[in-house]
Nucleic acid binder design. Structure first.
Length: 598
RNA sequence: GGGGUCGUAGUUCAGUUGGUUAGAACGCCGGCCUGUCACGCCGGAGGUCGCGAGUUCGAGUCUCGUCGGCCCCGCCA
């Protein structure tokens, strides 16, 4: 029976006429040809069903003994993930055989010809939306993982978003310009990935952390409006929303105005979200940095819920409670988080929250709870009569509320703790449900941040960020109080992007470098070409960069950007599929003038 | 660099106080089956318990080290 053996054949002139997922009831009676992967085989004997899968969907193909016994027998040789071509006729299923779970469930294809184009090993995990395989296994066999429709759909969305960005930016008058990947290492900022030069012994290129300087130079060139969907590289430790290489929608405009720039971004978000059927109201809320820190304890607050921090320093001003007394004496802060109706939370729950704030560096978590018999507090033994009532009132506490309090000499620690609590409570009370999108512009960031260890200031954004006009005078006298024309776009507690109006005045740029403690010689070495460019008629300019991976992640409801990057790295920066990074041959190192230290 | 958590069949997991031959489900292989769609029924194969030491008469189980996945802190202009 040579005929009935299933053997791999060349594709030859066979061409599909359709994608599996695009066949529908209108095609009933038509002859079609399909190509795809065997999703599953259900062999009932004289009747055999194959689920055939391609990029666009799945369809059922039927092989019957009483139609073509030889063909049906050959189909018995089919296994999962074999690659096949099918010719057949589209047929309606009888009413009782309709599968309402399937997009193509009303129809099936009666096979007339079967081409085995390739066989496949049994995959290490089942390829389906409900696979139970662990993430490391999926990453090792990423090509199989990407066959799963739920995974694929993220990349379809990502493609559509990129396309929409390009179309929108074109309409807004932007040019997409490519900038170098082999570029110059610059001080400050993240750690650079370095690329050794073969031609120039001992010299290195750096992969760009962002195209920052190049896009500013394009403004000096008069390009007026630039954008790029561009890969960026930062050699820092990874997180669920951080990869060593990631993609930004990078934007720069000349003669910028907040309203113009923000309007461009808001318009873009409107269009991108519309692709997913989501209407985004604009303009987005704008709040200054100082205010969001005081109200939410974070510079990227999740605005889907209204819980806010309250100020308790004044209410504890006269306290005799030693720990709080000390904090106030050292110019520290005492702030609280009032949870309406939170009195019902158990001691056990509060213990969990105490652990949470300890992890964030606080020495403890104090609380006041409203009960039937009056207020109860963790500080009952140490507060003066009436003090708890006064504090609770200062927090706006009413019946059945719970007030959580953190005190520390360092304001940042208080903010960190209460932000962590706020997010934990928000999650617990399901305020942050999916399907809701709350945008926020955080503006007026501080210009500099003091680094205790290095005993110097660092730029909060980057050293080309313009100070606010009214703060220029403090650049050299009191850098800590200078606010910058810098802003972040925050969505649901994730920093989606950030940018600034840049410095176009050489004099101010020099003062900023001086505030950062950089000598003229250092700045000349590192930024010389850029500083020179600034002299040749630099227009006022500014821009922003948005994280495309994070945007796709939020829109697809994924918890990690790994799910929206085709070939992502693990938490330790390796690729489980290609096994990179890896050692290289000695000759390669020699050519690069590199000797290893082992 | 630090903290947490996980690692047992191809996969996901169970495995009691340290004790006989390490189990289940799914998958895989073979057989039967004309309407399946998580097909069903019968049978079968499949294990370096991540790796290495140690304790013990005896280790999947206890100890130490190490490697790897994930989450968090630091870091990320």
């Amino acid at each position: 029976m040579e005929e009935s053996k299933l053997k791999v054949v060349p594709l030859g002139s066979f061409q599909r006429t359709r994608y599996c997922g695009q066949v529908n009831a209108e095609d009933i009676g038509k002859s079609i040809r399909l190509c795809g992967w065997v999703d599953s085989v259900r062999d009932l004997g004289a009747l055999l069903f194959v689920r055939l899968r391609d990029r666009e969907g799945v369809i059922q193909v039927v092989f019957k003994s009483d139609t073509d016994e030889d063909l049906r027998r050959r189909a018995e040789g089919l296994r999962s993930e074999f690659v096949i071509g099918i010719s057949g006729v589209v047929a309606a299923r009888t009413a009782e055989n309709v599968n309402s779970q399937m997009a193509t469930g009303e129809i099936e294809v009666l096979a007339e010809e079967l081409l085995l184009l390739n066989t496949a090993e049994t995959p290490p995990f089942e390829i389906g939306d409900d696979t139970t395989a662990s993430e490391d296994l999926r990453l090792k066999y990423r090509y199989l993982d990407l066959r799963r429709p739920v995974v694929l759909k993220n990349f379809r969305l990502r493609h559509q978003l990129s396309l929409e960005v390009r179309d929108y930016m074109d309409q807004q008058g932007f040019f997409e310009i490519e900038t170098p990947f082999l570029t110059k290492s610059t001080p400050e900022g993240a750690r650079d990935f370095l690329v050794p030069s073969r031609v120039h012994e001992g010299c290195f290129y750096a992969l760009p952390q962002s195209p920052q300087i190049f896009k500013q130079i394009l403004m000096i060139s008069g390009f007026d409006r630039y954008f790029q969907i561009v890969r960026c590289f930062r050699d820092e430790d990874l997180r669920a929303d951080r990869q060593p290489e990631f993609t930004q929608i990078d934007i720069e405009i000349s003669f910028p105005h907040y309203d113009v720039l923000f309007g461009i971004i808001e318009g873009m978000m409107k269009r991108l979200f519309r692709l997913s059927g989501i209407e985004v109201p604009t303009p987005f809320l704008r709040l200054p940095y100082d205010e969001v820190m005081e109200r939410f304890g974070s510079d990227k607050p999740d605005m889907r819920f209204a819980l806010e921090l309250c100020e308790l320093g004044a209410a504890f001003q006269q306290t005799s409670f030693e720990a709080f007394r000390r904090v106030l004496d050292h110019n520290g802060r005492i702030k609280g988080l009032r949870i309406p109706g939170g009195a019902q939370y158990s001691r056990n729950q509060i213990d969990h929250w105490t652990e949470l704030v300890r992890q964030n560096g606080a020495s403890g978590l104090a609380w006041i709870r409203s009960t039937e018999g009056g207020l109860r507090s963790s500080l009952d033994k140490v507060l003066r009569p009436g003090e708890a009532e006064a504090v609770f009132q200062a927090a706006g506490g009413t019946k059945d509320d719970l007030l959580l309090m953190v005190a520390d000499a360092k304001a940042q620690k208080v903010f960190d703790c209460l932000n962590a609590l706020r997010l934990a409570v928000g999650r617990k009370e399901k305020h942050a449900e999916s399907g809701r999108y709350a945008f926020l512009w955080v503006v007026d960031f501080p210009m500099f941040e003091y680094h205790e260890e290095d005993r110097r200031f660092y730029a909060c954004h980057h050293p080309f960020t313009s100070p606010k006009d009214e703060d220029v005078a403090y650049l050299t006298t009191d850098p800590g109080r200078v606010k910058a024309k810098a802003y972040d776009l925050v969505l649901n507690g994730t920093e989606l992007g950030g940018g600034s109006i840049r410095i176009h005045d050489m004099q101010i740029q020099k003062e900023v470098f001086r505030s950062l403690g950089l000598t003229d010689q250092e700045t000349a070495e590192k930024f010389g070409f850029f500083l020179e460019a600034l002299r040749y008629g630099t227009p006022p300019h500014g821009g922003i960069a948005l994280g495309l991976d994070r945007l796709v992640m939020l829109l697809s409801g994924e918890k990690s950007i790994r799910d929206v990057i085709a070939f992502p790295k693990t938490a330790r920066g390796t690729c489980l599929m290609s096994d990179s990074p890896s050692a290289v041959r000695d000759e390669q190192l020699k050519e690069l003038h590199i000797r290893l230290d082992h």
